[in-house]
């Protein structure tokens, strides 16, 4: 029987992981909610922004906070570029074409990153201590990432609910056609949404950089689970994605300690499959 203190530690680790997953899922969900297109390559945009943080901090010697801000700027630029170059021409295409286009972007980003920066794993070395509380260790980088993730999510919530442009974004996500009829320009809202989604990717990149090495295939670790969280929470449903992030991360963390690391993921994915049958619209969807 495992000591309860380790179960508590697992639960805390689950919360930390959930914060970062939620940040990734909210960016992807925001874009889907407004544009009705899934950016399959979203985590690969995070990967490119992580490279930006790495080069700014480790090669050009910027302080980590400034490097992180640089990553956010790169994220915003990438979000706008992806929208203008790839998404705009396919906005009215069938969903499968849209999926193929963003899937192609994923392979393009992985290949260009391999070409430019090789397959080497690059690490932002920050030396931060761990916090020990009653035998439970909490990693400082993960704690920082978690707190900042929550702050950014609160900021996003306030942006969407308390600003004019945020209200416009929510309006487009509710009825794209009606907004156009009222004389508003959905295209402008799309660009702003993509920029905000890109900024979220940049923030995630800055926070992940202090926890993970960056390499061209970074997306393979976080891409599938981020997408699953979005689907589990209900595509486009921000609150659903937030809750789903913590459900998944807690199952992975506690299941991993009670049974095994592999089993933690097996249970999480099995739950996902069951939920797709039980609640295909997401965990907060009303039953039909």
């Amino acid at each position: 029987m495992i000591d309860p203190i380790f179960l508590v530690e697992a639960a805390v680790n689950g919360i930390m992981l959930g914060g970062v997953l939620a940040l990734l899922a909210l960016g992807l969900n925001l874009i889907f909610g407004v544009l009705d297109i899934v950016w399959i390559a979203y985590v690969d945009l995070v990967m490119v922004a992580m490279y930006a943080v790495y080069f700014l901090v480790m090669v050009y010697g910027w302080p980590i906070w400034l490097g992180g801000l640089g990553g956010v700027v790169v994220g915003v630029a990438l979000g706008i570029l992806v929208h203008l170059l790839i998404i705009t021409p396919i906005l009215d295409s069938p969903p499968v074409n849209q999926l193929l286009a963003t899937g192609g972007l994923l392979f393009f980003l992985q290949s260009i990153a391999t070409f430019l920066w090789s397959t080497d794993h690059k690490s932002v070395r920050v030396s931060l201590p761990s916090i020990e509380l009653g035998g439970i260790f909490v990693s400082y980088p993960r704690l920082i990432a978690f707190v900042l993730s929550i702050l950014v999510m609160v900021g996003l919530y306030l942006f969407l609910t308390r600003t004019f442009i945020g209200t416009a974004i929510r309006a487009v996500s509710q009825d794209r056609g009606a907004m156009a009829l009222m004389g508003a320009s959905p295209q402008k809202i799309y660009v702003v949404t993509s920029a905000v989604g890109g900024a979220m990717a940049g923030v995630a990149a800055a926070l992940l950089s202090i926890q993970y090495s960056v390499h061209p295939y970074f997306g393979a670790a976080f891409g599938p689970i981020t997408f699953m969280i979005c689907v589990l929470g209900g595509l486009g449903n921000m609150v659903g994605a937030f809750i789903a992030s913590f459900v998944m991360s807690e199952i992975i963390a506690i299941g991993g300690v009670v049974w095994s690391t592999e089993m933690g993921y097996v249970i999480a994915f099995a739950l996902f499959i069951v939920m797709m049958f039980a609640r295909p619209g997401g965990i907060l969807a009303k039953r039909q």
Binding site: A10, N13, L17, G255
Partner: peptide
């Protein structure tokens, strides 16, 4: 490819 190994460390 696991994105997190903290539960393994705890064990």
């Amino acid at each position: 490819q696991a994105p997190d190994l903290s539960s393994l460390v705890t064990k």
